[in-house]
């Protein structure tokens, strides 16, 4: 189980990286960005991914940071997930993102894997895309034409595919200011501790005068991308935070899902069921945290 041959570049600067990507693009060379490699390496080892070139971003130390900019929390794409997990700033200002980070894989994987790598890899079973949808995160990319900011809703296109151009590099993820009093939850069903989720749900909501408001709910591990459960959100908006309302909303959210994917561990119907159960439980947990 050894990778097929490839060439390797580790540019010193972001412009250099973009220039390389441009060159490979125009030469028709299949280049792939290496951000940490925790998802890419197994694919290389099994020879299911066979890029001709790897462009390793490890030298771009300037993309390793966690900063508060006004209310916004910005995380450099090359920041190890473990750094986000251990950051007091992340824990205190973005509890949902922090909880999601803790759910990713195992310690060693979080040490080596980067925050940006997970976003760019866009595995539908990953926690981050769902959290990005719930929190209205933004993704900053730099390409030959300069910088652009992509709303999470436009970033994830389909299975392991984003709206990044082949010549663009994801440089930063941006978390909008956390609204005080927002309740949140993330729950998932994985076969073993640390496994990719069979299904999961992330949620936020606020309670205003005893009613749920600003309900955001997204499921992961179910469709080709993480997906907002809008039917559930709409149904719960303005409702009291009660078990029956959560159940009704969860059922609507799960019921409106596109046909979930199927694998040896979970059929399509079972995944739909998991979304319903986890959504119900997440809403209750989020409501219990809302003030």
């Amino acid at each position: 189980m050894k990778p097929a041959p490839f060439a390797y570049h580790a540019p010193e600067t972001l412009p250099e990286a973009i220039t390389l990507l441009q060159r490979f693009e125009s030469d028709g060379v299949d280049a792939k960005i290496l951000a940490g490699g925790q998802s890419l390496m197994p694919m290389l080892a099994m020879r299911v991914a066979r890029p001709e070139v790897l462009v390793d971003l490890r030298r771009l130390r300037s993309l390793d940071y966690i900063r508060a900019e006004g209310g916004t929390l910005t995380i450099g794409a090359m920041t190890p997930k473990r750094a986000a997990e251990q950051s007091a700033l992340v824990r205190e200002t973005q509890p949902l993102f922090h909880a999601a980070t803790e759910l990713v894989g195992h310690v060693g994987v979080r040490n080596r894997g980067t925050v940006g790598g997970s976003f760019a890899h866009a595995d539908p079973a990953s926690e981050y895309p769902a959290v990005a949808l719930v929190l209205d995160m933004e993704l900053k990319a730099v390409g030959p034409a300069g910088e652009r900011t992509i709303p999470a809703a436009d970033f994830f296109v389909t299975y392991m595919t984003t709206s990044l151009e082949a010549t663009e590099v994801l440089t930063e993820v941006r978390l909008p200011a956390w609204t005080r009093g927002t309740g949140w939850a993330i729950q998932e069903m994985a076969r073993r501790q640390g496994d990719l989720a069979l299904a999961g749900v992330a949620a936020t909501l606020r309670l205003v005068r005893g009613a749920c408001t600003g309900v955001r709910l997204a499921a992961f591990g179910v469709n080709a991308t993480a997906v907002r459960l809008r039917a559930a959100e709409e149904l719960l908006e303005g409702q009291r935070p009660e078990a029956a309302n959560f159940a009704r909303a969860a059922a609507a959210g799960a019921g409106n899902l596109e046909e979930p994917m199927s694998c040896v561990h979970a059929s399509s119907e079972y995944r739909r069921q998991l979304v319903e159960v986890l959504a119900k439980r997440c809403l209750a947990e989020a409501a219990s945290r809302a003030v």
Partner: peptide, 10 residues
């Protein structure tokens, strides 16, 4: 990924 040997968590 699919042959699920229990971890210390299970």
């Amino acid at each position: 990924v699919d042959y699920l040997i229990p971890t210390i968590g299970e």
